Amino acid sequence: MGEAKRRSSNDKFFGKIPKSIEMRGIVVSPPLEIDGTRLFARMSNLHPQELRFSLLFWDKLVWPSSRSIHFASGPDEIFLESAGILTRPDYTFDGDGATGIALGQIQAFIDFNEKNPGAWSLSQGEDSLLIKNGFSQISAGTSLELHRAIPIPKYDVPLAEILEFKHRRRDELLYFRHHLESLIPSLSNANRREDIDTAIQKIDAACADLVKVGREYQFPMYLSNLKANLSISPSKLVPSSLAGFAVGNSFGLTAASAAAGLAAIGSMIEIKADINFRSAKKEVSPFKYVYRIHNEL
């Protein structure tokens, strides 16, 4: 039996994940709310839950530092810095501290994404960065939200165990990431409703695989939502020739629901118009991620 045939019969991911998978990185922040020139900091370190979410799905983390308002690394951050996973480049801007922190986050995303187009994203949400105004355009982008379909390690899981999980379950993680990122090009190139259904089925299978391995592993995980924002206008998402599809639709994820033990279709994906950062380029890869926890698996 040839090597390719042997692998295809023993590895369910063989041929389904591109041979060349690029690094993916995310710009992270402590729980900060920025409203104009006002800054409210709930913590001075990265939130433990945010850090574990970011570590599970991304290869590199960047936490911009600033000489005007400095947040020192804690034990978790120092551990990841020593492992070469987290870096803290300086992004100091003149003017008020709140605007400087916001500019630092966005400029770090722009700089790193220019070096590796489509490979970097921003983390936002209650446990990360919330920018109230001044940097976004309403209804200029599109969001994909996976409801009750993603396992996330609990806030107190040791970081070393998450790294071990990533090593052992690399294929499932890459398979999920590949199909999440491929969903928008699949929709944009769809000619039939069956093409959309096929793309949804693939992300459904990827979510189900993640939920299954999350249930099997030793440390506790939450069942969560994952929202990915893209800079593509919803009007350009699906060809106008494709009748019967409209942004705002929800699609049931039956395999993910079954894996999570949810009644009926408890997991779903929602596609809708959303914000876009003014400085974001028109990339098909998500530029911003937000998660929301539901319950423990």
Rank of each mutant, 00 (worst) to 15 (best):
P30I: 09
Q49V: 09
I69T: 12
D96Q: 02
N116M: 11
F176Y: 03
K115C: 07
R148G: 03
G252V: 06
M268F: 08
H294L: 09
A140P: 07
L159H: 06
L129Q: 06
R278V: 15
E161K: 11
P18Y: 07
L39P: 07
N189M: 13
I78K: 13
V213Q: 00
A228M: 06
P220D: 01
L297R: 01
K132N: 14
S136K: 10
F93W: 11
S66H: 01
N133M: 12
E164H: 06
F13W: 10
S182M: 07
N295F: 03
I26Q: 06
E181W: 06
L230C: 12
K288Y: 04
A72I: 08
K202G: 08
S139Y: 11
T142Q: 04
A256W: 00
I110H: 09
E296V: 01
P31H: 03
D76G: 02
K236R: 14
R168Y: 07
I106L: 15
R169A: 06
A83V: 04
K60N: 02
L130R: 12
I17W: 04
M221R: 00
P89H: 04
A260E: 02
I184T: 08
R168S: 10
F79K: 12
R52H: 02
E114L: 08
G74F: 01
L226T: 10
L262R: 02
I196L: 06
L253H: 01
S66T: 08
M23V: 12
F219W: 03
I265V: 15
Q137L: 15
F245H: 04
D59Y: 07
R52L: 00
A140H: 11
A206H: 00
Y217G: 00
A72H: 07
D274S: 15
L144V: 14
L187Q: 03
A4N: 11
T99N: 14
K282Y: 09
L174N: 14
K166L: 02
L242D: 04
S188R: 14
A263P: 08
D209M: 01
D204S: 05
D35Y: 09
A4W: 10
N225W: 09
I203G: 06
I106C: 04
T92P: 03
S139E: 15
L173C: 04
M23I: 13
S20A: 13
A98F: 10
G252Y: 00
S233I: 13
G15P: 08
Q107N: 15
N295S: 14
E296F: 00
A263Q: 12
W63P: 03
S44F: 02
L46W: 04
P153L: 00
R7K: 15
F287H: 11
K12D: 14
S54L: 02
F79S: 13
H179T: 08
L144M: 05
I26L: 10
K12F: 13
D171P: 07
L237M: 05
H294R: 05
D96Y: 03
S250T: 14
S73A: 15
G261W: 00
S54W: 02
I17A: 09
D59H: 10
N189H: 09
H70F: 05
A206R: 00
D76W: 01
D171V: 07
G97N: 10
W58Q: 03
R88V: 06
F57V: 08
E126A: 10
N116W: 08
T99H: 11
P239N: 05
K154Q: 05
S231W: 01
A119F: 05
